[in-house]
């Protein structure tokens, strides 16, 4: 919550911005990268898994490896999310 700065309580000579635009921007970018990134990675994984059923040989292996990789990345993101929950700022 400290990222939102109340100008009234500031003792600084320089006026503190009412909205911490920089922090807001950081939050939006991080949320967009993770939110869109995870959806995209898992969606590609699902598409690869679905297409592998109609493929054969090396293409099938590549699709399946890609799908597994996507799931692994998403699992890592989940683990990082839990880490953030446990170590959230007080």
């Amino acid at each position: 919550m400290s990222a939102l700065i109340a100008a009234a309580s500031s003792s600084s000579t320089k006026p503190t911005p009412f909205i911490a635009w920089h922090s807001l921007g950081e939050a939006v970018v991080a949320a967009a990268v993770f939110g869109i990134g995870i959806v995209l990675v898992l969606s590609v994984a699902i598409a690869l898994q679905a297409s592998s059923a109609s493929e054969s040989g090396a293409r099938r292996v590549v699709s399946r490896v890609g799908a597994v990789l996507g799931v692994v990345i998403a699992t890592g993101a989940v683990a990082y999310g839990i880490y953030i929950m446990v170590h959230k700022p007080s």
């Binding site: 911490a20 939050a27 949320a31 939110g35 869109i36 995870i38 898992l42 953030i84 959230k88 700022p89």
Partner: peptide, 16 residues
């Protein structure tokens, strides 16, 4: 997924 990402990212960066 986007809800979880927005909530976790924003609270972690001090903008819950």
């Amino acid at each position: 997924t986007t809800s979880a990402a927005v909530i976790l990212a924003s609270s972690h960066l001090g903008f819950p």
